[in-house]
C-alpha cells in the first residue's frame, strides 16, 4: 500500500540517467512501473532512488533503419501492438502483446524495455525477441552495448544488465520476404503469466508461397530462459509447408530440449509443461501461417 521512501530523479537523457544510476547505491529505473510498483508496495523491493526515464525522447519510437527495426525501450505494449511497421516486418512481436496480462490499462503504460529487463519467465516478450534474433541495446557508463537476447537473459528474473545500465532499445533484424508471426500461450489463471508461450517467426517469399525460407520458433515460460526449438525449426526450414509437416514439426518440439531444465513448480509440473508444448507450437505456427492454404504432398 505504501512503498518505503525513495528519492525521485527525472532523467533528461540516457547519459543523465546513467549518471543518476551511478550516484546512488540502490537505484532502480522507473519506466511503466507495472512490474516494479507492486513489488515496492509490498516492500519486497526497497530502492533508495528511482530514476524516471519516461521523459527521455530518444527512448521512444519504433522505426526502421536499413536492415534493422529499432523499438525504443519506452515503447508501450499498446504502441507495439498497434505498430503497422512491426506488423509488417516482425509480426510475432505485436502478436505477442495480445497475450500479455493486465489488460489495456497495463498495455497503455508498460514498456518493452521494462518487460525484458525484468526477465520474468512468465512474461511474454522474450520468446518473440529470441525468435526474431533481436539484440537488446543497453547503455551504461561504458557506453552502448548490443547484447543478443539469448545472452541478455541469464535466468529467471536475472539479466546481464548492470545496476548502472538501462535498456534503451530493442533491435530486430529485417528479413526480406513475407514474414509471418504467431504467439500461442497457456496461461496460469491468476497471474495470466505464461506456463508455456510459443513464438513463431516464419519467412516466406510472398503471401502465397508455402516454402519456408526460415523458421525460428522459441518458447518462453518452459525453462528459466526462453529457448529456441531447433528440431521443430529444422523440420520446417527450406521445406514446403504441409499439414503433415506442420504436425510433425510440432510433435518434435521437445526433442531438442534439455528436459532437465524445464521448470517444475506449482504453476505446472515439468511433465505437464512438456505436454502443453506440442499443441501450443501447433497453434503458434498455424497463427503464423494464417490464411495461406497448405496442401498435402502425395
Amino acid at each position: 500500500m505504501h512503498t518505503e521512501q525513495f528519492s525521485y530523479h527525472r532523467a533528461e537523457s540516457v547519459k543523465h540517467a546513467v549518471e543518476l544510476l551511478e550516484t546512488s547505491d540502490d537505484a532502480r529505473i522507473l519506466a511503466g512501473g507495472q512490474g516494479l510498483i507492486p513489488l515496492m508496495k509490498k516492500r519486497e523491493l526497497t530502492p533508495d532512488a528511482l530514476v524516471d526515464i519516461t521523459q527521455i525522447d530518444e527512448l521512444r519510437g519504433i522505426e526502421r533503419t536499413d536492415d534493422t527495426i529499432r523499438i525504443g525501450g519506452l515503447s508501450t505494449h499498446r504502441e507495439i501492438a498497434d505498430s503497422a511497421l512491426l506488423k509488417e516486418t516482425a509480426p510475432v512481436v505485436p502478436r505477442t502483446v495480445a497475450h500479455i496480462t493486465g489488460g489495456q490499462q497495463v498495455h497503455n503504460v508498460a514498456t518493452i524495455g521494462g518487460n525484458i529487463a525484468r526477465a520474468h519467465p512468465g512474461y511474454d516478450y522474450e520468446g518473440a525477441l529470441l525468435s526474431t534474433g533481436s539484440q537488446i541495446v543497453v547503455s551504461g557508463p561504458a557506453g552502448k552495448q548490443r547484447v543478443p537476447v539469448s545472452e541478455f537473459v541469464r535466468g529467471p528474473c536475472s539479466t546481464t544488465l548492470a545496476e548502472t545500465q538501462l535498456v534503451t532499445s530493442i533491435e530486430i533484424p529485417v528479413l526480406s520476404g513475407d514474414r509471418r508471426g504467431g504467439y500461442a500461450k497457456k496461461k496460469e489463471p491468476a497471474s495470466g503469466n505464461a506456463i508455456v508461450g510459443v513464438a513463431t517467426d516464419l519467412l516466406f517469399d510472398d503471401d502465397q508461397s508455402t516454402l519456408v525460407k526460415s523458421a525460428r520458433i522459441a518458447v518462453n515460460g518452459l525453462q528459466g530462459c526462453a529457448v529456441r526449438l531447433d528440431a521443430t525449426e529444422n523440420r520446417l526450414e527450406g521445406k514446403q509447408l504441409t499439414p503433415d509437416r506442420l504436425e510433425a514439426a510440432a510433435d518434435d518440439a521437445s526433442s531438442s530440449l534439455d528436459s532437465s531444465a524445464v521448470l517444475d513448480n506449482k504453476k505446472a509440473s515439468a511433465e505437464y509443461r512438456l505436454c502443453l508444448l506440442e499443441p501450443q507450437v501447433q497453434k503458434s505456427i498455424r497463427q503464423a501461417v494464417g490464411e495461406r492454404t497448405l496442401y498435402s504432398q502425395t
Binding site: Y8, I37, P38, L50, R78, G102, Q104, Q105, V106, V109
Partner: peptide, 21 residues
Amino acid sequence: AICGACTVQSDGKSVKSCTRF
C-alpha cells in the same frame, strides 16, 4: 495491479491509478 477498480483515464488512456506514482 490486477483488480482494475482504480482505473482512471490519463490523457485518454486507461491506467491503474494504484500502480502509478
